[in-house]
Structures are given as structure tokens and as C-alpha cells.
Design a protein around this nucleic acid. Structure first.
Lengths: 142, 142
DNA sequence: TGTTTGTTGAAAACAATTTTCAACTATCAA
DNA sequence: TTGATAGTTGAAAATTGTTTTCAACAAACA
């Protein structure tokens, strides 16, 4: 797990300034174990006593995602959620009812990429693998 | 490959009326081998001489997707593309530059679902697997 | 052929996200 | 410590994909 300090350093290393707003966002992310929307992050950062705007959250999440420091998940309705990226975990299961998200140990899809590369001629660069299923809590209800 | 007639029957079977607009959309989809946005579909249907609106395209795509007659892909920016669903093919590679999309033979992820179900307690119902990579044409440029 | 009820579309509403641009501030050099 | 520089911020407006509204319309069945 990245510490907040390490994340800050990474930002600096890549030429980003370490502003109060970015500190606030990193702190909010570090305190949550769930995937959060930009609005969620804004709320939590404000709750921590910082003052910042939603625009800044979007911009910061773009930067963090570019650096690979946060993982962005894509939901059915097109909106995004973010959480600090943890090493070795690369995929997640999302509950369609409550959006609760859990990562699972990466599975090796390398063989698949190679096979698809060969059969389609596409140079595979990236992939999404997301599973959807009701979480234990939501199963309890139904 | 579904014929247009079969698709129409499927719609009727499920209680949908077979309108001129839906005919137009089915025809447009049948004539394209690419994944199209709603706007693309509208354009093509109009080019075929039909008169219809974008709202209808959205509504029809929802219906067709619910029935499993079209496959909907999710792009980075949150917008969608559709193509008639073909049996046995369940995943695709998308070119990030031109959005050209190609399906590849389904790979068996059953073992993965079971493993994840067990370790997370989520009841896996569905999944997305999308690969991204530059298509042969776009590679030629770079 | 008429009646019922699903369907349509223009316009407005929505929601997530991006852009604009002037004010601001982290950082660095002196 | 103090400018100066250039990245950063945020309120508001603009964008974009998509959904809703609601009155007019038209499949499909009796």
C-alpha cells in the first residue's frame, strides 16, 4: 500500500506541484477502502477540513490515473470511481446494486493477449476486466 | 448471423411492435460490420431513406440489448457502441485511436468466476472483458 | 374498421465531465 | 527572504451522451 508521503513524492517527481487540494484528495483516498466517485472524494476531502472544488478533483484524478497511482473503474452508466492503486491487484468485482467494489488477485491473461494479437492483428496495450455480481450484503436482502 | 427477419420476429415475440423506425434500425445494423454509436445508427438509418429520431435509436438499442440481440460495448469516455450480436463471440478488441472493433473467440473465464465467487462472496452474474490496442490500420500510421 | 395501447420525437431535463480565464500560489533562483 | 515564473485553482459556462416528458401517432388485434 502506498503511503501518502510516497504518493506526494511521485507527484513531485513528475513535475506536479503539491498543493493543499492535492494533499486533501490523497488524504481522502488514503482513508477509504472503497472506490469513490469524484463527488465522493470531494465530500470526504471537505469533511477533512479542506476547501476545494469538483473541477480540481477531476483534474487530480486524471493526473493520478496517468501516473498509475489510482485505479479507475468504469461503471455501467459511464461514470467512474477511483481508489489508490495497490500493487498486484488489477481487477475487481462490482456490485450492481450498491456499487461496492472488491479487488481480486490478478489472473494471468497474457496467453489471451498473445492469442488475440495474433488472430486480429491488434497490438494489445490495455484491457478491462470487470466482474459484476451482488455482494454478500445485497444478497442478504434478496 | 441473425437475419433481419428473425430479429423482427424476436421483437414481436417479446411484445414489441414492428415499426418503420425499428425496421430502419435493424436494416442499418445488418448492413454494418462495425460497432456503431447511436448517432451512427441514426445517420445510416436516415441514409436508407427512413425518418426517425435519436431518441428512438436509444430506446430501440435498449430493447435490442435487453433481448440480447445486440452487443453493447463500453468505451473509455463512457459512450456506447452497438452491433448485432453474433453467437459464440462474446468479447472484443477496441482500437483506442479509431474505435474500430473486432470480436474474438470467447475464452473460458468460468474457472475465474468460481475462484472469485469463493474468495469475495460476490455472486458473479456478468462480466466485461475488453481489450484495447491499435488496429493494423492505425499501427501503419505510427 | 375501430379501439387499444405501445411508440414516436421535439424539446427540455439530466448528469458526468471539460473548458474558460482571471486570480492565486508552490517552487525555485537570486 | 523575496521576487518572478509557471503550474494550479474554481466558479460558471459549455459539452456530451443519454433520458424524460407528453401529446400526437400508428401497429395490431378483435
Amino acid at each position: 500500500m502506498h503511503s501518502q508521503k510516497k504518493l506526494s513524492k511521485q507527484l513531485r517527481r513528475h513535475g506536479y506541484r503539491l498543493t493543499q487540494q492535492r494533499r486533501a484528495i490523497l488524504q481522502a483516498l488514503a482513508q477509504s477502502h472503497e472506490y469513490l466517485t469524484s463527488a465522493d472524494i470531494l465530500d470526504r476531502a471537505k469533511a477533512l477540513g479542506f476547501d476545494l472544488g469538483l473541477t480540481t478533483v477531476y483534474r487530480t484524478m486524471d493526473a493520478l490515473a496517468d501516473l498509475g497511482l489510482v485505479k479507475r473503474i468504469h461503471l455501467e452508466d459511464g461514470c467512474h470511481r477511483y481508489a489508490l492503486a495497490s500493487q498486484g491487484h488489477r481487477h475487481y468485482v462490482v456490485c450492481p446494486d450498491c456499487s461496492r467494489t472488491v479487488e481480486f488477485e490478478g489472473c494471468d491473461l497474457g496467453f489471451l493477449f498473445q492469442q488475440v494479437s495474433q488472430s486480429t492483428g491488434f497490438a494489445i496495450q490495455d484491457h478491462w476486466l470487470e466482474l459484476f455480481g451482488r455482494c454478500p450484503q445485497c444478497q442478504g436482502v434478496g
